[in-house]
């Protein structure tokens, strides 16, 4: 099976799973005892946040593999950028869905809570990473420099988290950790949440594969254009040297400069 077919299957599966999550989340599950219908947002918000972290994890691993000489290959750099872009999209969505939930639940769009603040910093950090990739430089230099930036960001995130946790904390404790014992969440709700996690992970997989392919093709196109340009130059050079050769052979010895210039043109 070609990668294109595999990618389509993954994309379709992702779409179906997301639709299933929406149906389950909006129509099948009962409203929450405390939060009412508001809790339905929690079938998407934690899965989206998880995908954002997953994406940055993949970017970090790919960057490390690119930096390490024995494993250095273009595909790791391509995977790093593909995953980072998807990660930034999902971080943005995490912040937006969190805000929408926070407004009715906490009464404000934004609070300076540890997890929110870490996510916001993460968002800006990786926007910077993507901006760094847009600076014109050679492919190898860009790959190496952005890999360093990605790894530094990766090192910084736990420190940011630690500092803001100390600073202030309000976010409700993790409910997902208790999924196994299912003491906090009702059965069907837990299953819907799990479905959400799987659905968005599949969507991540599809988006990253697609973006990876786009990056690959962009590089191939660039190479193609460059070799075309080289061929053209070589051909021009041949025509010139032929013309000069002719002139040298016809005995004028290039005394008539205008004649040579005309021919060379």
């Amino acid at each position: 099976m070609s990668t294109r077919v595999v990618r389509r299957i993954i994309g379709l599966t992702g779409l179906l799973l997301v639709v299933a999550t929406v149906v389950m989340g909006l129509f099948v599950t009962p409203p929450d005892a405390v939060q009412g219908n508001l809790a339905r947002l929690l079938y998407v918000h934690p899965p989206i946040a998880w995908v954002a972290y997953l994406a940055y994890g993949v970017t970090s691993v790919a960057s490390a593999l690119y930096l390490w000489r024995p494993t250095r290959a273009r595909r790791w750099d391509q995977l790093a950028v593909a995953s980072a872009e998807v990660g930034v999209v999902f971080t943005g969505l995490t912040l937006i869905t969190g805000s929408i939930w926070g407004r009715p639940a906490w009464g404000v769009w934004w609070t300076w809570d540890a997890r929110l603040t870490t996510t916001a910093i993460l968002f800006v950090l990786y926007l910077g990473y993507l901006a760094l990739r847009r600076i014109p430089m050679s492919r190898e230099t860009r790959g190496k420099r952005s890999a360093i930036a990605a790894l530094i960001a990766f090192v910084d995130v736990p420190i940011v988290h630690e500092s803001v946790v100390w600073w202030r904390t309000l976010h409700q404790g993790a409910t997902v950790a208790t999924l196994g014992t299912s003491s906090k969440i009702h059965g069907i709700m837990a299953w819907t949440l799990l479905l959400g996690f799987i659905a968005f992970t599949v969507v991540y997989l599809w988006m990253t594969m697609l973006r990876f392919q786009v990056e690959r093709m962009a590089e191939q196109l660039e190479d193609q254009e460059f070799s075309n340009w080289e061929l053209e130059r070589a051909k021009e050079g041949e025509i010139r040297s032929e013309a000069i050769g002719e002139l040298l052979n016809d005995g004028t010895n290039g005394r008539d400069n205008t004649l040579i210039e005309d021919k060379v043109r």
């Binding site: 910093i121 800006v124 950090l125 926007l127 910077g128 901006a131 760094l132 847009r134 600076i135 014109p136 430089m137 420099r145 360093i148 930036a149 530094i152 960001a153 910084d156 420190i159 940011v160 630690e162 500092s163 803001v164």
Partner: peptide, 27 residues
């Protein structure tokens, strides 16, 4: 210094430095 080295070399790079460094220095 590290980010200065990463973003240097090109004109656009210097205007990028604040975006790269400031979030990192939050802690």
């Amino acid at each position: 210094l590290v980010y200065g080295a990463l973003a240097s070399g090109e004109r656009v790079g210097e205007s990028l430095l604040p975006l790269l460094v400031l979030p990192l220095l939050a802690p």
